[in-house]
């Protein structure tokens, strides 16, 4: 029994060390890719998936934020902005940091499918039964960070592009 337990633990260790190494190391090799593909279902199921790519390989080179233009049924408009960390107090920043991460992900092309849900949520936040939102336009604002030879920083002008436009349905506001 003790031997069986010892063998099982060793198998567990060897498997996990190899699998985690293959998963984490950014090496372009058919063998590593094969290993990743094989362990992917188990890693996704168990929560062992992981990536350590913060500020890498290239740190973000622009300040960004996301805001929404809310157009109401009566044609009036308002602007709703995701909490911007730089405008919050130290305490608020601790509680609201998740919004920064979420807004960052909203702007990524590969996470486009998040946009309708986000638009619906913003519609709910900004509607009352007598004053319902009709259209939500999500806009990303950005200002490039340009390094200078002397290390100084001069903020660049802000640019914007529309991420998504959504026509609010009555059931979205339920």
């Amino acid at each position: 029994m003790r031997m069986a337990k010892y063998i099982a633990i060793n198998a567990f260790l060897i498997f996990h060390i190899l699998a985690i190494t293959c998963w984490c190391l950014p090496i372009d090799s058919p063998l590593i890719s094969l290993c990743k593909d094989r362990v992917r279902p188990y890693f996704l199921w168990s929560g062992l998936f992981q990536s350590w790519d913060m500020f890498s390989p290239i740190p973000k080179s622009a300040n960004t934020y996301v805001e929404a233009t809310v157009v109401y049924k009566n044609e009036s408009r308002t602007t709703w902005t995701f909490p911007r960390m730089e405008q919050l107090s130290l305490t608020e920043r601790c509680f609201k940091e998740r919004y920064r991460k979420f807004a960052e992900n909203l702007s990524r092309d590969e996470d486009d499918a998040l946009l309708p849900d986000a638009a619906r949520h913003i519609a709910r936040l900004n509607s009352t039964p007598s004053h319902p939102a009709r259209t939500i336009i999500l806009v990303q604002e950005w200002s490039f960070i340009v390094p200078r030879a002397d290390g100084s920083y001069v903020p660049e002008p802000w640019n914007q592009h529309v991420l998504y436009g959504y026509g609010v349905k009555p059931e979205d506001l339920q």
Binding site: F55, P59, K60, S61, N63, T64, M85, E86, I145, P147
Partner: peptide, 10 residues
């Protein structure tokens, strides 16, 4: 790299 990191307002 750290220049960019330090100038990210968020």
């Amino acid at each position: 790299a750290m220049y960019y990191v330090y100038h990210l307002d968020e």
